[in-house]
Each structure stands twice: as C-alpha cells, then as structure tokens.
Design a protein around this nucleic acid. Structure first.
Lengths: 149, 149
DNA sequence: CCGATTTAAATCGTTCGCGATATATTGGCA
DNA sequence: TGCCAATATATCGCGAACGATTTAAATCGG
C-alpha cells in the first residue's frame, strides 16, 4: 500500500540527509525548522513554526530548546503577548545557513530524478497529506459507540 | 521540496491510522510488522522482518517485545541456530487479523483517491525510496552527469 | 472590574528510529 | 582442536512525534 511506501520513503529520506547534516550537528527536523526560520521575514512564534511544518509545541518546544542549547536561536517571550515565544536567530544561526547551501543539490542527486518529476511528485504527495490531515469525510462509517454520557 | 512533503505526509499518514489502530492497541509500526507476520508462510526471524520493513533489530526487538507483552506473538530462539529468534503468532495474534480487515478500505477512503492513482503514486514513491537507500548508485539508464568525484 | 473561557507554551509518558556497542552463536581454517 | 571472523539479536542513549495534561497570559461577558 501507499502507506508503507510513504513511511519507508520518509525514513530513507532522513537517512539520506543524515551524513549531510551531521557535520552541522543537525537532525532533519531541526534542519526543517531552521529552513522555516531562515525564510521568515519576522521572528516566528512556536505556533507559527508549527503551522508551517505541521508540528505542535510538544514536539517543537524541546527541539527549539536544543537549537537554543546549540547556540543557533534564542527564545524570548513576546512582550506584547507573554503567552507567545519568539524565535530569533543568533549570529551562528544566520551563519549556518550558508553551510547548508549545497544540501538541496546533494539531495536532488541522491534521488536520481529530474526536477520536473520531483515537483510533480511533491504536488501529489502534498495533496495526499492534506487529505489525510483533513477529515473531510463524506461518510464516516464509524459505529456511534458512547454517543452520550 | 519533496523531502518535506514526504516527511509531512508520513506523519499525517500515521495520524490517520491512529484512530483505527488504537482500538486494537496497536501503533502503525506494530501494525506494519504484524501485517508482515500475517502474510508469511513460516515463522519469520527478526532479520527477516527487518528486511521486509527496512528496520533493524534495535527498532524491532523492543517493538516485538511489546507485541509479546500484549500477547500477540511469541519470541523463541531457533533451535537450529540459536542466534536467531523466530516470531510466531499466538491465538490472539491470529485473531487480531480479522479485526483489521476494514482498515485498508478506511484508509483508502481517507485519501480520497482512486486505486489506480494510489498504485501509481506508490510505485513512484517506492522507487524514490529505493534510490535514497542506495548511496553507491551507478545510475541505471541515467546520463553520467557528475556521478562521482 | 471580575470570573470564565480561550489561547500559547511547556511538561509528561510512551513509542519509534537509529548509531554505536555488547553478547552470543556459528562457521571457517590452520 | 582452537582461534577468529561473520552473523543475529539485544542494549543503550538521544532525538523525534504525539496524546494528555498543566500553567500562565489574554480576552470576553456581564
């Protein structure tokens, strides 16, 4: 089934990233979060990052703390709204971006596919993910167990 | 990039499985391993399972111990070769298979796609995964554009 | 102005996934 | 036979993911 392919390909993808990222002391999720921060105009909140990468605070808070411990970002409470935490890059965090410049090309080569094919594949996979995330169920065939009480 | 789609779709896929599997007390990787065991003719070894699902003993041993603790499988050293561990189903393990019969159809519906599209997508994703898993690729039918160095 | 609700992060416990390493069994070879 | 490499599993530590819960701040209704 597609599910196993997806699961397995995602694992293989992280394995392929590992040698490229370990020199930088990053994991793939950390790299992903940093990419999000790098391309943002203003300092993001934890929630803001989460909306882009589809992760929530219980995953992101520890990850961001590790990035902070590595000296790449700083976490500060937003003075406007003390519930929020703003993530800003340190000098090292900014500088690291340059050291990742080669990564997309490296990964592209590892896939052995051309860009058009990959873009098309990405479109389909993203659409599938959106479907799975969204219970747009036209007919939920779930037994109505414990509907009340 | 495709990588993020893949990563995110795999997470979403596991989320979609969760409500279906939690009634059975299973996680997706556990379900995947059980599917492998269910369809095997003879009792598999840990390595045999690992080759099918692309996981190794450091992941599978704890997982199989949890399945054993749940009373679904039994782990026994192969008397022919005491290095190996044979995984056999208990009665409960066999019986559980029937309770998973609806799952593929449920997941199919959640994708909102037709089978042909999914099969085609699966083929592409599997090919991509195979490529990513294989670092020393001599690029079959690919132009040798900076393959080495 | 105040209590109730909503919202944002953080925390906790469990399960993966895997690199590195340990342990034990087997097989080969002198 | 005895030693050594190869093989199979297990163990350990770390970093995700996520459900469930907690804490604290903001907002809303009266």
């Amino acid at each position: 089934m597609v599910c196993f392919s997806l699961y397995s390909a995602a694992n293989a993808m992280q394995q392929a990233y590992r040698p490229l990222l370990e020199d930088l002391g990053l994991t793939y999720p950390q790299y992903l979060v940093l990419c999000t921060i790098w391309t943002a105009r203003n300092p993001l909140t934890v929630k803001g990052i989460g909306q882009q990468v589809h992760l929530d605070s219980s995953t992101l808070t520890p990850l961001l703390k590790r990035l902070e411990a590595s000296g790449l970002v700083i976490r500060t409470r937003d003075p406007e709204d003390e519930r929020q935490v703003r993530i800003t890059l340190t000098e090292a965090g900014h500088a690291l971006r340059d050291r990742t410049a080669h990564i997309p090309a490296c990964m592209l080569e590892k896939t052995g596919l051309d860009i058009d094919t990959l873009v098309q594949l990405q479109t389909q996979i993203s659409a599938l993910a959106a479907r799975l995330r969204n219970p747009t169920d036209t007919a939920p065939a779930k037994p109505p167990r414990a509907a009340n009480i």
